[in-house]
Design a protein around this nucleic acid. Structure first.
Lengths: 130, 130
DNA sequence: GAATGTAGTTTCCATTCGGTAACCCGTGGT
DNA sequence: ACCACGGGTTACCGAATGGAAACTACATTC
């Protein structure tokens, strides 16, 4: 007999799911880092590069453009000479900060719990031997 | 003159960053959905497939194996005949739920704010025309 | 006029990732 | 005997992504 499907549904269906929605924002590489960095105040391109070691200018540009297009951050070109460009979170972007804080604090807990840093991804051939 | 670098550093450097740490867990496709679904109680493989429309068995398997290896969820094979397999969050995995809730609630806000759903990801050739 | 600094852009490349589809195994029902 | 179901696995594939490196433009300064 077919097992019956329990139907205490999970809180949100993934159709137009806010979860998916939000993850599409946070999903890109370095995105949370950028937002996190900006949460401490406005920053220029090269400051961000320093704040986020390892990010390449290409990816950083991509992220900034993308987040700007989504209304998460604001790009402000100061007409100084050499013009400097300042990025800051919009009110909209600020809303993401608590979520990122939550993620960060979970990150702390995950580290505290001393994960043995699993290196294997799909090497679970043992499934049948269980 | 070189602009001076402001040094009100962002809260966490990305070296062994808890943010990065945690995102490496949440980053895979459908991962948050899986955890979200399991946050409502234990679920079997096929229930998850129903809860998360669009997820392929391959990816679902991958995610479940990965999350199991990380200690986020627990795989419980019931020795019934046909054996059914139940997945549930570990205490560890539960810790992720608030973060996901935060993400979900931001997702709601992002939707409320009526984003014009930018479909283009990297098609911002227009950069110069701005 | 050469160097430096800011703020990127562009090209190229390798890899990863996820999706599709097909297949597998054991059990139970008809 | 045969099919369906639960719970996957495997092979194959194309798109997307992220990284590296080189290059650009403009302005100031030496």
């Amino acid at each position: 007999m077919a097992l019956k499907i329990r139907k205490n549904k999970s809180p949100e269906p993934p159709y137009g799911c806010p979860l998916t929605e939000c993850m599409s924002v946070l999903g890109g590489a370095w995105t949370p880092n950028v937002i996190w960095s900006l949460s401490a105040g406005p920053r220029r391109f090269s400051e961000l590069r320093i704040d986020i070691p390892g990010v390449s200018p290409k990816v950083l540009t991509t992220r900034l453009r993308d987040l700007e297009a989504r209304g998460i951050l604001h790009r402000d070109v100061k007409p100084t000479s050499p013009p400097s460009v300042e990025y800051s979170l919009t009110a909209h972007g600020m809303k993401l900060v608590p979520a990122i804080e939550a993620i960060v604090s979970v990150g702390h807990e995950l580290k505290k719990a001393g994960k043995p840093t699993p290196k294997r991804r799909t090497s679970r051939r043992l499934a049948k031997s269980v």
